[in-house]
């Protein structure tokens, strides 16, 4: 290769390496600030102060949703399967809100209860037809039932 071109090539490679290292350091330093939400475990570890606005993310605990008969008040529990955080919200939940599915709520902590001002449904990466989802659910139920009878014997 022509020496001048070689020099330019080396300059470009050095530029890319330098930028890569610089952005790696920056991202490592920013790390937690780039997280979109905190989990119930983060809250129990005291990572978020009372009254500070932040986002809470996790799965809606099964059978935890309680709706008020007269108002739009709703309460449910968000879990990361290790810790739980009770949530209170006044408003309309998104269509994809479902127990056992993920949500991200914005709001703040008040006496250990998360007062949400916005609730978004987080969708996971799984895509399948309804029949396949049913088949998987049935297979899981069967496996669980099988395990239960075995343990009884």
């Amino acid at each position: 290769m022509h020496p001048l071109r070689k020099q330019r090539l080396i300059a470009i490679v050095a530029l890319l390496i330098g930028l890569g290292v610089a952005s790696a350091f920056t991202l490592a330093a920013l790390n937690e600030n780039l997280d979109h939400f905190y989990s119930p475990t983060d809250i129990n570890e005291g990572k978020v102060a009372e009254g500070k606005r932040f986002r809470l993310g996790g799965v809606v605990l099964e059978d935890s949703t309680e709706r008020s008969a007269e108002t739009l008040e709703v309460s449910f529990v968000v879990t990361d399967r290790i810790e739980n955080t009770p949530v209170r919200y006044s408003g309309i939940l998104p269509d994809l809100y479902k127990e056992g599915q993920s949500v991200i709520a914005t709001g703040s902590l008040e006496n250990g209860v998360f007062k949400a001002t916005e609730v978004l449904a987080k969708h996971d990466e799984n895509y399948m037809p309804a029949e396949v989802a049913d088949a998987i659910a049935k297979a899981k139920a069967k496996q669980a039932a099988g395990g239960a009878t075995e343990s009884m014997q």
């Binding site: 997280d35 979109h36 993310g57 996971d124």
Partner: peptide
Amino acid sequence: WWNTLHQGETVRIFGESSMH
């Protein structure tokens, strides 16, 4: 790397994709 609202990848080159 981070907790995002956007879901993780569905199609994987290595390993099974999470789409029927």
